[in-house]
Each structure stands twice: as C-alpha cells, then as structure tokens.
Design a binder for these strands. Sequence first.
DNA 1: CAACTTTGTGGCAGGGACTGCCATAAATGA
DNA 2: TCATTTATGGCAGTCCCTGCCACAAAGTTG
Lengths: 228, 228
Amino acid sequence: MSDHQRQQQRLEISRHAVRLFREQGVSATSGEQIASAAGVSERTLWRYFRSKESCVEPLLTRTVNAFKDALRSWPPDLELTEHLDVEYTLTPAPSRSDIEAVLAVVRLTRDEPALRAVWLVLHERAEPTFAEVLGERMGLPPDSLEVRIHAASMNTALRVATDDFAWAAAEGIGPEAMDRYRERLSSALRTVLRVPDRAPAHGTERAESGAVPPTHPHDRPRPPRPGA
Amino acid sequence: MSDHQRQQQRLEISRHAVRLFREQGVSATSGEQIASAAGVSERTLWRYFRSKESCVEPLLTRTVNAFKDALRSWPPDLELTEHLDVEYTLTPAPSRSDIEAVLAVVRLTRDEPALRAVWLVLHERAEPTFAEVLGERMGLPPDSLEVRIHAASMNTALRVATDDFAWAAAEGIGPEAMDRYRERLSSALRTVLRVPDRAPAHGTERAESGAVPPTHPHDRPRPPRPGA
DNA sequence: CAACTTTGTGGCAGGGACTGCCATAAATGA
DNA sequence: TCATTTATGGCAGTCCCTGCCACAAAGTTG
C-alpha cells in the first residue's frame, strides 16, 4: 500500500471522527463508532491511530502544513509577512468544509484536554522544519539553540494566531475573516521576528483586543473539589 | 482538607510515580503500582490524577513555577536576564533529588508521547501568568495578541532551554551545569525579547551547538510500517 | 498460470486505565 | 455528643487499546 493511500485513509477517518466529535462530543464518541462510520473494523482503526483523540490529527495538521509550504517557498528577497500575505492562503489544498472542521476542532481543544494535547504536540513536531528554513536564512545550523528558539517562537505565533482565528471565525468564514487572520498572523510573526515595522510602532493592528478570548482555563489537574 | 495538603499529597504521589517510571518505563508501570507505592488506594489515585501520565505533573510544574516566581519579582529597572541570573536559581524550593527527577522526566518525554503532551500542556498553562507580567511591563492588556505572543515565546524559550539542560545534565548536575543552564536560558530569552545586547551581536553564547541534540523524532502517527 | 511471499485487514480475547456508586471513616461544627 | 460534610476504599463495569491468529489481496518468481 502506498504511503499516499495510507495518508488518504487516515484523512478520511479523521473527517468522520471530527464530525462525530462535533456532533456528540469526544467522550461520547466511541472508537467503535468512528470505525464503523469510516467503514473499517475497530482493529484497523487502532492500527491507524494510537488513540481516539489522535484521530483529529490528519485534519489539524493541515493548518501547519499550509504554513510549512508557504515557508518553504519563501524567496530570500522578501519579508516573510509580505510573502505570506500572498502565499499563505490556506484555501488551496483543504476544502471549505475541511477548514471549518479544523477550526471547530481547534475550538474543541479549549475544553478537551486530550485534544489540546494533540494540537500542541502536532505543532511542536513542525518545529524542526521551521528550524531548517530559518537556519538556512540565518546562516546557522538548524539545531543551534538560537535557530531552534526562533523556530519555536514562530511556531507559537502561528498557534496563537490560529487559535484566535478559530474563535473569531466561530460562525462562518468569509473572505474578510481570512483577511483578518492573515493580518493577525502577520502581526504575530512580526512581533516574533521583530522585523522593523514601517509604521512607527503599534497602534493599528492590535488595540481592540477583540474577538473571543481564546484563553484556556481548560485543563487543571481536575481535583474533585473546585472550591475550598 | 486544605488546598495545601492536597498539593502535598499530589506531590508525594508524583515522586513515587516518577521513580517507577524511571525504573520500569511508563507503560510497564500500572496505576495500581503507583497507588500502592504511594500508600493510597487506586480509586483515590484516579481522584487525584486524571491519567497515569499526569502523575508527573506536580514535579514537572516546579521548573515552570520557579520561573514564574522569578518573573514576578522582576524589578522594573533591570534587564530580565540580569534579574534571572541572580533570582532564577531553581535550587531554592525543590531538593536536589527532585531536580534530578524533573530532568529525568523531561528526558523521558522524548520517547513517551503521553509525557511529552503533559509537558507541553503544562507549559502552555503558564502563559497567562507570563502574559500578566509582560502586559504590566509593556503597558498593554494581558489578553492582547501582542502580549500573548510574547508570553508564549517566552514560554517556548524556557521550554527549549530546559529541554536542552535536561540532556546536557544527563549525568549529574554540578554547579557548572546550573551555570550553563542559566546562560542558555538567558541567551534564549535574549533572542526572544531581542534586548539590545551589549556585545556587538552574537558570537559568544551560541557558536558551538554543543550538548545532546534534544530533537524529538518521538511521536509520529505510529503507522505499522516505517519503510515503504 | 501456479506457487510463494508479502502486506493489509478483521475477529477474538484480554489487560489495564478510568468511572459511578455506595459504604464507611475521618474531620468539622453546633 | 450528635449531625453534617468531606475524604477514602471497594466493587463492578465500561471502554480504550493490544497481541495473536487466520485470512484475503497484491506482488513476485518459476
């Protein structure tokens, strides 16, 4: 079986899993349900995914992958943000419904610690790739501390911006939402990369800290008693 | 039962869990073992911890907490790195063996995805605190995108530096190792905060990308077949 | 085409993580 | 001292997930 076929299979399962998670919640969705919805036996489901929650991975990865692709095509003579403005559309590969599914999952991660974990792990896994590109740029080895830090920061900026976007676009995504997203992402990357801004300082893109607060009171060790 | 007592109990269990994880590996350690080692019933173990792996949390949190404390005592007239050099000793609260345990766990996270996940989640949970301090500093609301990004970057820098340290100090930690750690952490934070360096640029603290490479080939979807 | 090997899948059994429920003990307070 | 709350243990049960085996599909060699 080709690697590509396997990926497709995983993606297909992922779509079903996410649909069920959205409809019923994660804990109310059993592995058996996912398996039968995807038309495979439960046994093979566990061969494809190590855990119930990791079923969302193939879909979630798409946001990071889109960024990766954009990064790799980053020409040396351009600002990163400028390049992303034209390149990082996120619309090419994934369909509209896929995007909405991804964003829905991101929102789910707020209250589902296990999903949050796969989201974070998934992002971290992308860091070596970022480090490679940045290392190239900076003329430093990709495994040097400095490059790794920058890569991780970039990663983090991407994550925060995406989180933000997921909540801002909670009800439907129009082109203006996408624009807002790119704008926020650019802003985030700029603060990380500290590219000399043409505008004097801040004041335009931040200010109103609008949108839904994507903070995460989520996890906590979950002790029996919340109060005193 | 006081909150503090509960914390102590959790910490105590955590020590046992980590010891067992180090001795036998995570998967070979059962919840029952942890419970009986800690002298509680399995039932109450699950009341204290939502999962086997999260048992390491109370210990792991100490590194982040130490940083939090140092951050909070950051006087307005000092560079952060200078402040940390004297304040962030990490030795005050936790004992030597605790520190070693923490570092061992951090090393374990390389090959134990579940542990890696709690490590990442734990770090992310600290970001609001960082954001509060930074927001204060920057005169911006703690929930503004810019502040959150900076907080997250700081977080990430701390994580990468700690990871690095855990591997560099794999065999015993002397004072020189601690010094190296602080140095690396300072370096990491400097690249994130981009504080104007007194030295012309780089060239002193990075250069040799020494230490053990703390990259993480760890997770991967775990497909049955690695090759073709 | 036939025999053989390789690879993907399903079924079954089982272990272990985790939860709900109830009984009971310990702590708190009047 | 009694009543109430709170922490714990035991037990049963569910579900996630794995090891094993048997079988089918696909590729390889003669």
